Amino acid sequence: MYKVFFKRLLDLILSAIGFILLFPVFALIWIVLLFVNKGKPFFLQPRPGKNEKIFNILKFKTMTDKKDENGNLLPDELRVTRFGTFLRKSSLDEIPQLLSIVKGDMSLVGPRPLRVRYLPYYTKEEQIRHTVRPGVTGLAQISGRSNLDWDTRLRKDMEYVQNLSFWLDIKIIFKTALKVIARKDVALDAESGIPDFDTYRKNMLSE
């Protein structure tokens, strides 16, 4: 009953309240990024959602679009702005995702939506992560996200879906809040320090 009805209701209530309370912060960041990122305050990227339906993830833009002499984007570490670093460390770049929750593309809690190009590389068992709405935070994110390898991270996603409940969601929301306050392991969507998932799986297959 919770998974079918009350989870969505909880998402709507909490995300609406959260966005109303954070709207002054949202508006201030939006204005700053209009100048910092030359009129482009938001980052949009296609991601697979529930049942692998593609939607555009919405975040505050933390990197510029600077390119090299050949027209290729510079490495991420050379494009992240000082203000963008602050947004990432404080998780304030995630605020726009509250609108994605209201729209129905995302949930407060669930497996993080990864890149579309990763879809062919999940095992049949791992594909269970796409039977629920992706989340702003999830079990992997409170379990040492930046220290987890891909296999462990995906096992955490599977564990979440298999044990989904109201109390598990509340636990994850509470622990996420503590991590945000402590500014510990809060780069929810970052993949720095580990290879891309498709590259990781290709290397495994070639061994």
Rank of each mutant, 00 (worst) to 15 (best):
residue 1 M to D: 15
residue 1 M to C: 12
residue 2 Y to Q: 07
residue 2 Y to I: 06
residue 3 K to L: 03
residue 5 F to R: 13
residue 11 D to T: 03
residue 12 L to G: 06
residue 13 I to V: 15
residue 17 I to Y: 06
residue 17 I to M: 09
residue 17 I to L: 15
residue 19 F to Y: 09
residue 23 F to E: 02
residue 23 F to L: 11
residue 23 F to P: 04
residue 24 P to Q: 02
residue 28 L to V: 15
residue 28 L to T: 14
residue 31 I to N: 06
residue 39 G to K: 13
residue 43 F to H: 05
residue 44 L to Y: 07
residue 45 Q to I: 02
residue 45 Q to P: 00
residue 46 P to M: 08
residue 47 R to D: 11
residue 47 R to L: 15
residue 47 R to N: 11
residue 48 P to L: 13
residue 48 P to W: 08
residue 49 G to W: 03
residue 49 G to F: 05
residue 50 K to T: 04
residue 51 N to I: 06
residue 54 I to N: 11
residue 56 N to L: 14
residue 56 N to P: 05
residue 57 I to D: 02
residue 58 L to T: 14
residue 61 K to T: 11
residue 70 N to K: 09
residue 71 G to K: 03
residue 71 G to D: 08
residue 74 L to K: 11
residue 74 L to I: 15
residue 74 L to D: 13
residue 75 P to G: 10
residue 80 V to F: 09
residue 81 T to F: 07
residue 83 F to Y: 09
residue 83 F to E: 01
residue 88 R to Y: 10
residue 89 K to N: 15
residue 91 S to M: 01
residue 94 E to I: 07
residue 100 S to H: 02
residue 100 S to L: 06
residue 101 I to K: 00
residue 102 V to G: 06
residue 103 K to V: 12
residue 105 D to M: 12
residue 105 D to G: 08
residue 105 D to A: 10
residue 107 S to G: 09
residue 108 L to R: 04
residue 111 P to I: 05
residue 113 P to E: 12
residue 115 R to I: 14
residue 116 V to E: 14
residue 117 R to T: 04
residue 117 R to V: 06
residue 119 L to P: 02
residue 120 P to T: 07
residue 121 Y to A: 08
residue 123 T to E: 07
residue 124 K to H: 10
residue 125 E to Y: 06
residue 127 Q to N: 13
residue 133 R to T: 02
residue 133 R to H: 05
residue 135 G to H: 02
residue 149 D to W: 01
residue 149 D to E: 12
residue 151 D to K: 09
residue 151 D to E: 12
residue 152 T to D: 15
residue 153 R to V: 05
residue 154 L to Q: 01
residue 155 R to C: 00
residue 159 E to V: 01
residue 161 V to A: 11
residue 162 Q to A: 14
residue 164 L to C: 10
residue 164 L to A: 03
residue 165 S to M: 01
residue 165 S to D: 06
residue 168 L to Q: 13
residue 168 L to M: 15
residue 170 I to F: 15
residue 170 I to Y: 09
residue 171 K to W: 15
residue 171 K to L: 15
residue 174 F to V: 12
residue 175 K to S: 11
residue 175 K to R: 15
residue 176 T to M: 03
residue 176 T to K: 02
residue 179 K to S: 14
residue 182 A to P: 01
residue 182 A to V: 05
residue 183 R to W: 09
residue 184 K to D: 14
residue 185 D to Q: 08
residue 185 D to R: 08
residue 185 D to S: 08
residue 186 V to P: 00
residue 186 V to D: 07
residue 188 L to N: 10
residue 188 L to Y: 07
residue 189 D to H: 08
residue 189 D to R: 04
residue 191 E to S: 15
residue 192 S to F: 12
residue 192 S to A: 11
residue 192 S to M: 11
residue 192 S to P: 01
residue 195 P to T: 01
residue 195 P to N: 03
residue 195 P to K: 00
residue 201 R to D: 02
residue 202 K to S: 03
residue 203 N to S: 13
residue 207 E to H: 11
